[in-house]
Design a protein around this nucleic acid. Structure first.
Lengths: 344, 344
DNA sequence: CTGTTAGCGCGTTCAT
DNA sequence: ATGAACGCGCTAACAG
C-alpha cells in the first residue's frame, strides 16, 4: 500500500531513525510517557487513550526500541549463551529447550559458538558482556581466569551447563561425566566382556568419560584398555577409522566404549562391512542417545542424558533468580542413564 | 584478588550499574570522549594518554556498554537471524559460516528458531526488529504479508537464504528447490529405474522438491510415483517407516527419492533388514550430502548443496552493503550438484 | 590531540 | 489517569 519508491538501504545515505513513542504519542494526542505506560502496563491507561494509541501504532508501524528501553531500565531481556559448537545436536537441543522456556518470559538468546579453546571463549564473553545481558549461559565448567573475573565482576547470574562442579561461578546444571565412564565400565564387566577399548573424539569432556571408563575397567579386570583418540569432531568416518585402527593395534574382540553415538554407529558400520557380528565379536556402547541410536541395526546401547532437561532446568534457575527467589540449590546434577539395546 | 564478599546477584536488590567511560576517564585524567575515541580509533589519541586509559581499563575491568553505543550511533553491530530449526544441521551449518564471517567484522548474531509457521515467524521478526539490528537474515522466501511490510518499513538490509526467488524482499542467496527434483528424476530415468517413489518429511521446501520429482518422472515415463509424506521432521525412523509403508502400498522395486539424507539412510537400514539389495532392489537418492552420506553402507547418492557457501555468500552481500557498495546482483543462485554414490 | 555540547529513545520519579 | 523533567552511557558534531 506504500513503499512504491525504491526504499532499499542504499538509496539513502544514513539510515533513517524510526518511529518513536514521541511520534505515536503526538498522533494519539498524548505524551510519550503515556505510550510507554500503555505498552508496559495497559491497566495504567484509560481504555479510550489505549485505543487511540493502538490506532497510532498500527498506522505508523511503530516497533519499540528495545535498545533505548534497555539503556533506560538497565534490563535488556537478553540472555547470552556460549556453546562449543552450534552444529552439535547435543548443544543445540539444549539451547532449543532453554530458548523456548526463556522466550515465554520475553527473553531472547544471543548465541555464539566458541569452539573448545578457553581463550576464544574469553573473547566471546567480553563481547557478550558488552551487550549487557540479564544473564549468561556457559557450556562446561572450565573457563579462563580472566573470564571468571569478568563474569564475577559483572555481578550477573551465570549458569554453567553440561557439566558438574561443587563450585560453579554462580550456578550449574549438569552431570558428572566421569560417572558415565565408570557406569559403562561396570556395565561392560557385568555383561562379561573381558576385553575393552575406547574411541573418543571431540572435547575434553569426552576424554574425561573415556579416562574414567579405562581406569575403572583396568582396575577391576586387570585387562588393559586400548584407546583411539581423535582431535577432530566425532563423525561416522572417525568411528569406522577408529575400529580399523583398534583392529590394527591388536584388538580382536570385546567391547568398545565410544564418546558419542555417531562414533558407535561408525563402529557398527565398519564391523558389519568386515563381517563381524555385533555384539558377539564387537560390542559397542555409545553416548548421548541420539535420535538414530534406537533405529539403526543393531540398535545402540548408550548413555542417555536428558538434553532438553538441561535447557529447561537452566532456564528455571535463572527465572527463579529473576523473580527474586533465592535459589536453594545452585548446583544441580541431572544424572544419566544407561539405555540397554542390542549393541552391547 | 578482589570480590571477597558475596557478590552474587541476590545480595544486592538492584543490579549495580557498572564502570563507565566517565569512570575510566576520571582515573586516566581525561574526559569521557577521549576514552570513547581511544577505543574506537586509537590513532586519534596520543600514545601517552592511550596508555593511561588502558591502565585504567585494566584496573577497573571496564567493559564498554554496547547498548548505549548502539543507541547513540544508530548502529548495533547486531544481525538477527531466523531459522526454522536450530537443531537441523542444514540450517545450523549455514549459520555457523555466516557467523564466522560476520564476527570477523565485529557483528554478533541473534538467532531464533521460528518453526515452520509464518505466523510465528512474524512474531519473531517483530521481536528482532525491536533490537534494532543492522540487518536480518531469514530462511526461505515465504513470509506473512505483515512480516514483509514490517521488514520493508524498517529499511534494513534483509537476506533471504536457502531458497531462490527473482523478487526477494531485498536480497536472496539460495537455490531452486524444484530444480533438484527435476534433476533427480532425470537421473533416475537415465539410470534406467522404471519405477519410483518418494518419501518426504519436514518443510514446504521438501514437498516442493518431491512434487518436482514426481511431476517430471511421471511426465517422462508415464509411470506413476507413489509417495509417503510425513508432517514431522525427518528422522531415521521415518525413513524406515516410509519404506515399509511404500512396500505395503504395493511398491516392490525401484528408486526412492527422499527429501533428506537421514530418510535415505533409514530406507537403507530398513531395506537391509528385510534382505533387500541396494541399489538392485531398492535404489535411494537423498538430499543434503550430510557428513554421514559417504560413510554408510552402501554410500548414499545425494543432492549436494554447499551449505557453508550460503552462509558466507549471505555475509558477503551484507558486508558489501554495509561498506556502501551497491550489490549488483541481489539474487544469487548457488545451485546444487548430484553426488553419485552406491545407493542409486 | 582533546574537550564541550547535544542528543539517541526510552523508563523512572515526582507532580498534578 | 496523565505529564514534565531527568538520566541511562555512549557517539557525533563542532570547537579550540
Amino acid at each position: 500500500m506504500d513503499q512504491t519508491k525504491d526504499t532499499r538501504p542504499e538509496a539513502s545515505e544514513k539510515r533513517q531513525r524510526g518511529v518513536t513513542m514521541e511520534t505515536v504519542g503526538r498522533m494519539a494526542g498524548v505524551s510519550q510517557v503515556t505510550v510507554s505506560r500503555a505498552l508496559s502496563d495497559p491497566s495504567k491507561v484509560s481504555a479510550k487513550t489505549m485505543r487511540k494509541i493502538q490506532d497510532a501504532i498500527a498506522a505508523t508501524g511503530f516497533v519499540p526500541n528495545a535498545i533505548a528501553g534497555a539503556l533506560a531500565s538497565n534490563k535488556s531481556k537478553l540472555i547470552t549463551a556460549l556453546v562449543p559448537s552450534i552444529t552439535n545436536i547435543v548443544y543445540s537441543s539444549m539451547i532449543r529447550s532453554f530458548s523456548l522456556r526463556m522466550r515465554e518470559e520475553g527473553y531472547q538468546i544471543l548465541l555464539s559458538e566458541t569452539g573448545f579453546d578457553p581463550e576464544d571463549e574469553e573473547v566471546a564473553i567480553a563481547a557478550h558482556l558488552s551487550r549487557r545481558p540479564d544473564a549468561l549461559l556457559l557450556t562446561g565448567i572450565h573457563h579462563s581466569a580472566q573470564a571468571r573475573r569478568m563474569l564475577l565482576a559483572s555481578g550477573l547470574p551465570v549458569v554453567e551447563v553440561w557439566d558438574y562442579t561443587d563450585s560453579p561461578i554462580d550456578m550449574c546444571v549438569g552431570f558428572r561425566h566421569a560417572e558415565t565412564g565408570y557406569a559403562a565400565a561396570d556395565y561392560a564387566i557385568e555383561r562379561g566382556y573381558t576385553k575393552a577399548a575406547t574411541i573418543a573424539a571431540g572435547d575434553e569432556r569426552a576424554l574425561r568419560r573415556k579416562d574414567a571408563f579405562k581406569s575403572r575397567y583396568e582396575q577391576k579386570t586387570g585387562s588393559s584398555v586400548l584407546e583411539m583418540n581423535f582431535e577432530s569432531n566425532a563423525t561416522l568416518a572417525r568411528g569406522r577409522e577408529g575400529l580399523a585402527a583398534l583392529l590394527d593395534k591388536g584388538f580382536d574382540t570385546g567391547l568398545i566404549f565410544c564418546s558419542s553415538d555417531i562414533l558407535a554407529h561408525g563402529v557398527i558400520i565398519e564391523a558389519t562391512a568386515r563381517g563381524m557380528r555385533i555384539p558377539e565379536d564387537v560390542a559397542v556402547i555409545g553416548f548421548g542417545d541420539q535420535e538414530f541410536a534406537a533405529d539403526v541395526e543393531p540398535s545402540i546401547t548408550t548413555i542417555k542424558v536428558d538434553r532438553e532437561a538441561f535447557g529447561s532446568a537452566a532456564a528455571d534457575v535463572l527465572l527463579a533468580r529473576f523473580h527474586g527467589e533465592t535459589v536453594e540449590e545452585p548446583e544441580i546434577d541431572l544424572g544419566f542413564e544407561i539405555i540397554r539395546r542390542k549393541s552391547a
